[in-house]
Design a protein around this nucleic acid. Structure first.
Lengths: 149, 149
DNA sequence: TTGACATAGTTAGGAAGCTAACTATAATCA
DNA sequence: TGATTATAGTTAGCTTCCTAACTATGTCAA
């Protein structure tokens, strides 16, 4: 079927397919690591985003924006994280519509324990590439990501 | 936080993050194209796999295996495709446990209409890379995909 | 040849994302 | 100032994936 199309499109198609495969494979691997900490990638990213803040605090809508999910999804993620004691919600005295989400000590501990496992996974997954290859690869990825359709 | 880890891990981590981002972005774009044909990527892949067979037929378990989803998921995908008239189920006279799934003419038509749109998407998404870059990129992707942990 | 195991498909129920509609609060401007 | 509009978060219901358990059929060995 690929033969019905000119060379460039076939190359691009293969690239897309491989990227989709690799992306989903990496996601599965990440979830497998996080499972041991009773997390999925959605909640993990929330913790990472909070941990990156100077004060470990953010609004749900900011987190949703940064993570690229809807506010509705963020509500669910925060609910679960709150149940797990990894995060707490505080009312915002300045704006009654808002909630401030804060990383708890338990949450920060968990990040500290899980993060090295994530680094190890990344290292293992990319171990077939030389440093120079990694840099080229990253440059190409960023070239593609910047294109907005 | 990246600074807490040696150089190679930071590079690998960035690569993983970018790959995850790009993978999910491509998936969203693909779904957006397929939406116009009342399909999601799950059902689309089933159609493609069937179309690739000489006789446009396969067992659900084979399709599940090739697509990398569970048989339970495949049951759902085939149900929906059958409702849409794109596929039909035939009993296997040789083995009462089996079903043969067959692409209908309507299904083949739809593949013929949707495929060029998918090629166009792939071409557009990879347009920032030169042919030579695409080849290197593909080689690297395959290097990584082969690693099985 | 029949009892144990294996295989193909389905069903039931759960997780995590989405959109659309809703509530409560804040901001704007006539 | 009071009516409209905008914003933050939540809720409800859909989708598509998953696992585990089930049904029906086939296979094999005592």
């Amino acid at each position: 079927m690929l033969k019905d199309f000119p060379q460039l499109e076939a190359e691009s198609m293969m690239l897309c397919i491989r990227l989709l495969m690799l992306g989903s494979e990496l996601l599965v691997r990440l979830d497998k690591v996080l499972e041991q900490f009773d997390l999925g990638h959605g909640r993990w990213v929330v913790l990472m985003l909070l941990r990156r803040r100077r004060v470990w605090r953010a609004l749900p809508s900011e987190l949703a924006q940064e993570q690229g999910v809807t506010r509705a999804t963020m509500t669910g993620l925060i609910n679960k994280l709150e149940q797990q004691g990894l995060v707490r919600r505080l009312p915002d005295p300045e704006d009654g519509r808002r909630n401030v989400v804060e990383l708890t000590d338990a949450g920060a501990d968990l990040v500290a324990r899980a993060l090295p496992r994530c680094y190890a996974l990344a290292k293992r997954s990319m171990s077939r590439l030389e440093l120079e290859e990694k840099r080229m690869f990253l440059a190409m990825l960023e070239k593609i990501i910047l294109v907005d359709v």
